[in-house]
């Protein structure tokens, strides 16, 4: 299989995301995959590795360095062009939106490289979704802690049972058309302010 001969370099400061892409590429039969997660002094390493395809995250400030390397092609022997050529604007849009870009050795057939970028885009998007989910889970956990704290205040100050406390919070949230955690936060703030005078 000739595709296995393509060497891919992944430049991504996010090590987890980089290894997710690496795993995908290896599953697809690309054995020559290298990851660089640091950003300084990588020009010489790229020169030594001499990859056919470079996948880089858009957060990485080294894009400007890469483009100059390829443009001057003094340290890198072979000229390299941006993957998405003039006829393929849609691919660039989806790549940029996913937060990834790729560069290839000039002359390498587009059909051979397209699956690599497609895979990178997919994995970047999946990773972003995972991060969003994690963020939501964190928020939910934080919200639950607030509710517990608010319930404890109501139980202490008004002699409510836990269930009564929760029902009051929920009712208030419904009446105010806001989240229970928001009501809980307001209650905690108010209780803190009132206690400060003690």
């Amino acid at each position: 299989m000739s595709d296995s001969a393509i060497s891919v370099l992944i430049l991504d400061e996010n090590k987890i995301r980089a290894s997710i892409i690496e795993a995908g590429l290896k599953e697809a039969g690309h054995s020559q995959v290298t990851i660089l997660s640091h950003t300084t002094g990588i020009a010489k390493e790229i020169e030594t590795l001499d990859p056919d395809v470079i996948v880089i995250d858009l957060e990485n400030p080294n894009r400007d360095m890469l483009e100059a390397m390829f443009q001057l092609s003094r340290s890198v022997k072979r000229p390299v062009a941006m993957f998405v050529d003039h006829s393929d604007g849609a691919a660039l849009v989806s790549a940029v939106e996913a937060g990834v870009s790729a560069y290839i050795v000039d002359g390498l057939k587009k059909e051979r490289v397209k699956p690599i970028l497609d895979l990178a885009i997919l994995r970047f998007n999946a990773f972003a979704k995972m991060e969003r989910d994690l963020e939501l889970a964190k928020e939910e956990l934080a919200g639950r802690k607030l509710i517990d704290q608010a319930k404890a205040i109501l139980m202490e100050k008004r002699g409510f049972s836990e269930e009564e406390a929760y029902t009051l919070l929920r009712k208030t949230a419904m009446n105010q058309n806001s989240k229970i955690s928001t009501v809980a936060q307001s209650l905690i703030t108010a209780a803190t302010l009132l206690n400060e005078g003690d």
Binding site: P61, N62, R63, D64, E67, L92, V96, S101
Partner: peptide
Amino acid sequence: SSWANIRDRMA
């Protein structure tokens, strides 16, 4: 984070 991003995101 890069001038290349500025250029491409404008494009």
